[in-house]
Amino acid sequence: CHSECLGNCSQPDDPTKCVACRNFYLDGRCVETCPPPYYHFQDWRCVNFSFCQDLHHKCKNSRRQGCHQYVIHNNKCIPECPSGYTMNSSNLLCTPCLGPCPKVCHLLEGEKTIDSVTSAQELRGCTVINGSLIINIRGGNNLAAELEANLGLIEEISGYLKIRRSYALVSLSFFRKLRLIRGETLEIGNYSFYALDNQNLRQLWDWSKHNLTITQGKLFFHYNPKLCLSEIHKMEEVSGTKGRQERNDIALKTNGDQASCENELLKFSYIRTSFDKILLRWEPYWPPDFRDLLGFMLFYKEAPYQNVTEFDGQDACGSNSWTVVDIDPPLRSNDPKSQNHPGWLMRGLKPWTQYAIFVKTLVTFSDERRTYGAKSDIIYVQTDATNPSVPLDPISVSNSSSQIILKWKPPSDPNGNITHYLVFWERQAEDSELFELDYCLKGLKLPSRTWSPPFESEDSQKHNQSEYEDSAGECCSCPKTDSQILKELEESSFRKTFEDYLHNVVFVPRKT
């Protein structure tokens, strides 16, 4: 048989008469490798580009789960590009990614509803959504962080984005990388972005840091009482949809009607710091009717980097990364020049730590249904340095008659930039024990000054392991946590139920 035959053949030295091919099969003959313009397919066939392209389009058009959109890589027609490569849609070739590779997620039936953290986790790592997304989240724990972890990498949506009755959302900033909504599939009414009845939605994105392009379709905003109209108009300008909307697409009466839409800028007039305090004062603000001013709200939190936005980490279910302080308005003076500047002394802060701070007014709604208010920009203030805590785990070892090696770990709280350490030492008198000992005694162990690591005695271990207080009263049991108490109650309830079950099964009433 021919060298490319495997198993047997019907005619000697003829690659077209093989029972099976050793390498690849091409047009009725066995070959060692697939010549151009053919590609290896499933490690035994040679196919042309049209064959591989037909497989790709067949799966793409069917949208069946589990099928493969075949691509070409290293002269092979394979189910998908290997790690580190992405497909070129024009020629199906796998090309190296520039940075992290995109991950295209194809949605069944063309859309997916995100109504819980669990459903959001199914899209973790996706960068391109081939379909439409509907966000409908009523509640949950730590929602802002969970949504950002699972949806934060999405850069492109081919269909539309719909935010509907998501009472738990305060902001859409968890879509931190969303840059493009194509609108290839539109919501009824030709809408590519749809926001309806979101009672706590206050911000779409921080438009000073976020760009969003909507290729096709219109915007729809109705019944978002805490979303200011200025935020919607800003989205029109940034996304390129200005002029597409009709009169009733953006409701003037049901958007922002319960919001404090600040239209003035508060400026800080005085800032002073110490290692654990920050004193702030800002310019006074009074609405047209000074009785509408209820006070100020001061927001602050630790910020290692200057990239904080107002609604980071917030949701309507209680999660809030900001510390909020309510401040009463100052006494009002008739003389504008003698107006008191409101302020606040922030206490209990960490030394040498940068804080993000902003302040906003708290006002009631005027009778004319106009909203007044003022808010400052987010500023960054760093507390002063102070003395560091003591170095940890000092170790001293003498390696000769004239040297001592000293080692330690950095302090747990540096409280500033540590530039150097101060080492103090003092000579001590020799131990009298060394002169009084009889060095001729056998088995004498000389006193040693070398360091030995501390260890816990058996008594201390027994005390720590004991669940009861000892007789001397030195140790006591740790208080039980809520989960331990709940577990004990469940076990007790189970024992009672099981005992009742045994009584009912074992003891049967005697027939009379």
Rank of each mutant, 00 (worst) to 15 (best):
D326I: 11
D312A: 06
G131S: 02
K409M: 02
V117T: 06
D335V: 07
L280S: 01
L123T: 03
H341W: 12
T127R: 11
P391T: 06
T353H: 08
T241S: 10
L227T: 06
L147R: 01
K253Y: 09
F174N: 02
G139Q: 14
D326C: 03
R281Y: 14
R347P: 10
I135V: 05
R370K: 10
V104W: 13
Q339R: 09
K177V: 08
C105K: 00
Y160M: 14
I379K: 05
N248C: 14
N150F: 14
S319A: 06
P288Y: 01
Q121R: 13
S389C: 04
Q403R: 13
L161F: 04
G373V: 04
F221R: 00
I135Q: 00
H341L: 07
N255Y: 05
R281I: 14
S171R: 09
S260H: 07
E236I: 03
G217Q: 02
R247Y: 06
W352R: 02
L279V: 13
W282G: 00
E187S: 09
S400A: 13
W282V: 03
R347I: 07
E155N: 08
E148W: 15
G125T: 03
T213C: 10
S269Q: 05
D312K: 14
Q354N: 08
C317M: 11
A259P: 14
Y380M: 04
L266Q: 02
L143P: 06
L349G: 00
E236F: 12
S321F: 07
E148C: 07
G313A: 09
D335E: 15
Q258S: 13
R202F: 08
L123P: 01
Y167Q: 15
N136S: 07
W207C: 03
P329Q: 15
E283H: 07
N399W: 10
L108F: 10
T127Y: 09
V308H: 00
I378Y: 02
N224Q: 11
G131D: 01
F299W: 12
A144W: 04
G217D: 00
P388S: 07
V397T: 08
E262T: 11
F268C: 02
N130C: 03
V324E: 14
L279E: 15
G256E: 10
Y191M: 05
E146K: 15
I114D: 00
L266W: 01
I271M: 09
N141P: 13
P329Y: 03
K267C: 09
I357F: 01
D257H: 10
N320P: 04
T213Q: 10
L298D: 00
L392S: 14
F221V: 13
D367Y: 14
G110P: 05
I357G: 01
S116F: 10
D312N: 05
F193S: 00
W207Y: 04
L133G: 00
W322P: 02
Q199H: 04
N255M: 07
N248R: 14
Y160R: 06
V170A: 11
I278P: 00
L293C: 09
N142W: 05
L265Q: 12
K360L: 03
D312P: 10
P411F: 02
E122R: 15
L252R: 09
K209F: 09
V363D: 07
P329S: 06
H341P: 11
N334P: 10
Q314P: 02
L280C: 04
F311A: 14
D328G: 02
A259L: 12
A259S: 09
T113M: 06
F193K: 00
S274K: 12
T241L: 14
G313Q: 13
D249Y: 12
S230T: 07
Y160F: 10
I232P: 02
S166G: 11
Y300L: 07
D377G: 05
L153S: 12
Q245P: 12
R370S: 06
K103H: 03
F299K: 14
A374Y: 05
N248K: 13
G159T: 01
D393I: 11
K103G: 14
Y167F: 14
D315V: 09
W205Q: 02
R138D: 04
R202Q: 03
D289H: 06
I181Y: 00
R176D: 06
